[in-house]
Every structure is written in structure tokens, then in C-alpha cells.
Design a binder for these strands. Structure first.
Length: 594
RNA sequence: GAGGGGGUAGCUCAGCCGGAUAGAGCAUCGGUUUUCUAAACCGACGGUCGCGGGUUCGAGUCCCGCCCCCCUCGCCA
């Protein structure tokens, strides 16, 4: 074990250490080590000398030369396989020798090795991730795509980097809509059957009707409230109905989760916390954080102008409604406490729509003060938020009738298009494989990748054309590249990873470029983890696939010279493993052929 | 009004812990296959990085002002 998993990080540490022996630099010198912006400059560059020279009023080139001399004397640089020089106004460029590239490729050969390299980021940390957390009694629609897809990718990233992860599906199963729904069910004498695929759709229709009635007739609204009150007081009939509604919802959700390969460790919905909110009210009141306002129990944050009681537009954190019932603020607070006490959470990650930013900001501030006042240890709280999926017109996506687009219909359409495309491109593959394996996987992968491919904080325009186009930075392109690599091994009669003995160091431009790209994985992973942005990984995988394609076009793998063939097979094997591991991190299951 | 996001090629978007000549895909035009999956590769075309100031050796990236678009703002989650 000698090659650095993440050379940029190690280089940075090394330069900092050596800089202490250079008088003009010292201990607080920031080397600003970055991947080289242009490969002609090498693999990594140190930009920090320019700024330091300015402060010390020295010639930057001379200072860079001095620092580099100290680095070279120290010896590590050469051992790690770097060549280096001073360039331009005072940059220091570092280039890994082909032998060093070969060593990394030899050493970091599979997901286990990468996981070990990456484990420093989250080693052993207890993390609870809250997703996709849908509301019950409604079918999953396009709005549920992002929490599923982003949540799963973030979860896998964290797990890959060593976190001890609990996936907690915090379903919304205790909302005020249950009064309306229960009333409507009773009126119609409707019988619920959780095993029926139709059941949730029926519930939704009932709710729509009931909702319209309550809007039209105040007496109806009172009746609905009465049903809700009965439920909350533990009425047997209403509780049974509520349980059935939740069961119907969960069964329908599960059918969607299965198609996305989603598994929760626990599903503790809001209802689970209904007997735990009193403690929240009591403690918040006792430590002087919460107070009555217009009959509700609210928390003001006078230290934050926007959330202060003096703000122009009042935005209190309402923890108990004026009718005495809880809301998501109260249950979210109770949930934090539960996760800390019973799941030993050191970090909680919420994956939700960006429109909830105010809520989470207030939640986090309130929790911070509450935990401080009660001498509890606060976990790190992170809101991983995302933008909205827009229709082709740039407005919230809807069907022609104005209803939300069902998630299942998105999956079906994507799958159908994928089937068409595969059948056109590769008709000799067995029909059954195309239909049951390849098409569904490409379809779901396309949905996922479209969602993950751009920065999550951006809104994006949903376009069938773009989503199902199999060119450019898309899932089918990446899947295709992964399949092409596998095909090389199939033709050679080898398993991926075999035939590397006696490999020489990369030599041709295509080989070198690919090898460098492979090394870039560690940095991409770190970047994706830092802000929990899966799209950094997407960008990397796309680059890697491109580097492979160029390599593949100019470097025939199955050649006669054993050393050349072995080194190219090694490059192929690593590309294959990295593409496939990377896709899995995004939640995308790679294919054998397509 | 306050807060958040966005404004980069005709379109969709990367790049934004300041770094050397601003990148992809699509579209348009052209080239590459008796060769490991051409769903590919290579090339050409295409830019006042919203506008104006400032900081800096260096600004798409940081700061200030302004303009435009989207979202949120008292009891839904």
C-alpha cells in the first residue's frame, strides 16, 4: 500500500508540512492544491505561492522555486511518483509518472479498495437520512421523483464513505386530511382493499370529492373536523379506517420503491410521534423558547431578524396550532429527539424540496436552542434540498387535465421508449431480456440520471425528448459505455479483472488520459460528499466514459504484445468497475449488455 | 418588503474554496467502420459569462449597486 488514494489531499498536506521550513511561507500557508485546469500543466497544481509572495513582497517565481526545492529535498514527492516544475508567474505543477499511474490502478482495483480509501470521510459516523417521506393517501406523482432519487443517491454516497446509516422514511400519516377522507369513506360505505392496485386511486378520488364538499358546505367541514378529533382521541372505528388507509398507501408506495430499488431501515411516520409532542411543548415552554400567540404555541427567534417578533412579515415557528393539534414543526422536533436518543444520531440529513427551507432553518435553530437549554448533544443537521421539476413550458409539470403526472406513468413511458430503442439498435438480443431486464433498467436509469445530472438546487425542465435521448450526458450513454467495456472481456474469454499480469505502464495518449481520469475518482467522490451533491459524481462518470471512448477508438485492447494487452485490459477493468460502482452509487444498476 | 434559487454558445446545462487559451451535449456542417457493441469517435461552426462599478498580479468565480425570471413568507407537509 503506497499509492495515495486522493493525491490532491495528500499533496496539500505535504506542501503545508514542508512550507513550515520555508521562512516566507510558514504554518498558515494555504497551498491551494487543485486538479490541473489543463492537462498540459500536469495533474495537479499549487496556486498558493502567488498570494503568499504578494504578502511577503517576494518574487513569486523565486519563492515557488524555493518551495519546490524544499519539497524535492524532503523526498516524498519522488517516492509518490510526481514530477514537478515551476511554471508561469509562480505556479507549481505536479505530474504523476506513468509508473505512478499504473501503481494506483494496480492498487485501487475494486469497490472495496475505493471504499477503504474513502472511509476517512465518514468513518463509523451514525447518520440518519430522512427520505422519501411521502404523504399518505395520495398516489406518487412526479413530485416524488426527486426525494426518491436524490435521497437514495445521497444515502449510498454516505454509506460508501463509511457512515453507519439509518434510512428513515418519515411518512406523513397524521395530517388533517384524514378527517375529510374518513368522512368520505363512511358516506360511501367504501371498502378498502390494500392488495388492490386500484385502492389508492379510489382513495384519492374520494378525497377529492370530500374536499370539494367541505369547501362548499361549512357543516361538512365541521363534520370532517369531528371525524379527525375522534381519530385523535383514539376512536376504534376511525383508528381502524386510518390504519387501512395507511396500509393501502404503503402498499402502493412499495410498488414504486421496488422499481427504484429503495429500501428503508425504519418507517416511523408522524403518527409515531403523536404521544411525543407533549414533551416538546412542555420543554420549549419551560426553557422560555415557546409562547402563546393568537392561541397557537410559537417560537420566535429575535436574534434572526426574519424570524423575530418584530419582523415586518411575521414568520413564527408554530409548534402547536390554535386548535391544540400538532403540526410538522412539533413532530419534526420530537423526531430529532427520538433519533438522537434511540438511534444515536450524530448527523441527520433531510432530503426535501427547497420550498421547505424556511421550515428547516427554523427547525434547526429551534432544536439548537432547545438542546442547549436542556444540556443535550445536538447532532449535525443538514437540509439537502432540491429544486422543482418543470414542464416543457417552464411551469410546474402537470398533465393536460391539470392533474399531477403519475410517477408510474413516467416509469412506464420511459421503459417503453427504452424498449423501442434497444430493439431497434440490438434486435438480436433475446426479446425477453430486452423487455424484462434491459428496458426497465434503462427507463428507470434515465429518469434517475436526468434528475441527478444537474445541480440539485436548480429547477429543471422535464423533457421527454431529452430524457429519452440516449446521447450526451445521459444514463443510456453511461450504461452503453459500461456495456462496451464488458464486451471486450467477453470477446477475450476473460472475466473483468483477469489478464493484467505483466502489464506495462500506460504509454499512448489515450491510455495516459484514461489512467488520469481513473485517478480522478477520489476527488470527485470527495466533492460529491462535501455538499451531498450527487451531480459531481455524474459529471465525473461522464468524463470517465468520454475518456474511455476516446481510448477505445485509438487503442485496440486485444492485441498480440502481452505487455500492451495486459495494461489495456487493466485500464478496461478499472473503467468497468469504476463506471459500474459509480452508477450503483447513483442508484443505477448497470447492464451486462444492451 | 424579506429570504432562497437562477441569468454562461441558437437550446439544455457544466465550470463558481479566484489561476494559465471559458467547457460539454443537442442543433448545423464535415470526417471515421473488412477492426474488441457506430447508442461511438474525431473535427468545424458557435460566447460583451444579465448590466455597471470595486477588490486583485489575475474575476464567469469574491464585494457593492441595479435589471429580469422562478419559489417561499401565521396555523398543509
Amino acid at each position: 500500500m503506497s499509492a495515495w488514494f486522493n493525491p490532491a489531499r495528500e499533496l496539500d498536506a505535504l506542501i503545508r508540512r514542508v512550507a513550515t521550513s520555508v521562512p516566507a511561507l510558514g504554518a498558515d500557508f494555504d497551498p491551494q492544491v487543485r486538479p490541473a485546469t489543463d492537462t498540459r500543466h500536469g495533474d495537479f497544481q499549487c496556486n498558493g505561492v502567488l498570494a503568499a509572495a504578494k504578502i511577503a513582497k517576494l518574487n513569486p517565481r523565486a519563492l515557488a522555486t524555493e518551495l519546490l526545492a524544499a519539497l524535492e529535498t524532503e523526498g516524498t514527492l519522488k517516492k509518490a511518483g510526481f514530477e514537478s516544475d515551476v511554471a508561469g508567474p509562480g505556479f507549481i505543477n505536479f505530474r504523476l509518472t506513468p509508473a505512478a499511474l499504473a501503481e494506483w490502478i494496480h492498487e485501487y482495483r475494486d469497490a472495496d479498495a475505493w471504499r477503504r480509501g474513502a472511509s476517512a470521510l465518514y468513518a463509523g459516523r451514525n447518520v440518519v437520512i430522512d427520505y422519501p417521506s411521502p404523504n399518505t393517501a395520495k398516489q406518487m406523482h412526479v413530485g416524488h421523483l426527486r426525494p426518491i432519487v436524490i435521497g437514495e443517491a445521497v444515502a449510498r454516497l454516505l454509506e460508501f464513505c463509511g457512515a453507519k446509516l439509518t434510512r428513515d422514511n418519515h411518512i406523513g400519516d397524521w395530517g388533517t386530511n384524514f378527517g375529510i377522507l374518513i368522512l368520505a369513506i363512511k358516506r360511501k360505505g367504501f371498502i378498502l382493499d390494500a392488495s388492490s392496485p386500484q385502492a389508492l386511486e379510489d382513495l384519492e378520488a374520494l378525497y377529492k370529492e370530500g374536499s370539494a364538499l367541505t369547501k362548499a358546505d361549512p357543516a361538512e367541514l365541521d363534520a370532517a373536523r369531528a371525524e379527525l378529533a375522534k381519530l385523535q382521541l383514539g376512536d376504534t372505528a376511525n383508528t381502524a379506517l386510518w390504519q387501512q388507509i395507511v396500509a393501502v398507501s404503503n402498499a402502493a408506495f412499495q410498488r414504486i420503491y421496488d422499481q427504484f430499488g429503495l429500501k428503508s431501515d425504519v418507517t416511523l411516520g408522524e403518527s409515531f410521534y403523536r404521544d411525543k409532542v407533549d414533551q416538546v411543548y412542555r420543554e420549549l415552554t419551560e426553557c422560555g423558547l415557546a409562547e402563546e400567540s393568537d392561541g397557537a404555541l410559537v417560537v420566535w427567534h429575535d436574534d434572526i431578524p426574519r424570524f423575530s417578533r418584530d419582523a415586518e412579515t411575521k414568520l413564527p415557528f408554530i409548534v402547536r396550532k390554535k386548535d391544540g393539534s400538532s403540526n410538522y414543526a412539533s413532530t419534526d422536533l420530537a423526531t430529532i429527539l427520538y433519533r438522537v436518543e434511540h438511534m444515536k444520531a450524530e448527523e441527520i440529513v433531510y432530503v426535501t424540496d427547497g420550498r421547505q427551507q424556511d421550515h428547516f432553518q427554523q427547525l434547526f435553530i429551534t432544536a439548537t436552542k432547545w438542546f442547549k437549554a436542556t444540556n443535550r448533544k445536538l447532532p449535525r443537521l443538514r437540509h439537502v434540498w432540491f429544486g422543482t421539476i418543470l414542464g416543457e413550458d417552464g411551469k410546474a409539470i402537470k398533465t393536460k387535465s391539470g392533474d399531477p403526472v403519475r410517477l408510474q406513468s413516467l416509469i412506464d413511458e420511459a421503459t417503453a421508449k427504452a424498449y423501442e430503442k434497444v430493439s431497434e439498435k440490438n434486435p438480436e438480443l433475446p426479446e425477453d431480456e430486452r423487455r424484462t431486464v434491459i428496458a426497465p433498467r434503462i427507463g428507470v436509469a434515465a429518469l434517475r440520471y436526468t434528475d441527478l445530472g444537474s445541480n440539485r438546487t436548480m429547477d429543471y425542465r422535464f423533457s421527454w425528448e431529452k430524457m429519452l435521448s440516449f446521447e450526451g450526458n445521459t444514463a443510456p450513454y453511461l450504461l452503453y459505455q459500461a456495456v462496451r467495456v464488458r464486451s471486450v472481456f467477453r470477446n477475450a474469454g476473460l472475466k473483468v479483472g483477469q489478464g493484467e499480469e505483466g502489464a506495462s505502464a500506460p504509454e499512448t495518449p489515450g491510455e495516459i488520459a484514461l489512467a488520469r481520469k481513473l485517478l480522478g475518482f477520489s476527488a470527485a467522490l470527495e466533492e460529491a460528499c462535501a455538499d451531498l451533491r450527487p451531480h459531481a459524481l455524474c459529471t465525473y462518470l461522464y468524463d470517465l466514459a468520454g475518456a474511455y471512448s476516446s481510448f477505445y477508438a485509438d487503442n485496440k485492447v486485444l492485441v498480440d504484445e502481452p505487455a500492451v494487452k495486459a495494461r489495456r485490459l487493466a485500464l478496461c477493468a478499472r473503467t468497468s468497475a469504476l463506471l459500474e460502482s459509480g452508477l450503483r452509487l447513483l442508484g443505477i444498476e448497470p447492464l451486462e449488455r444492451m
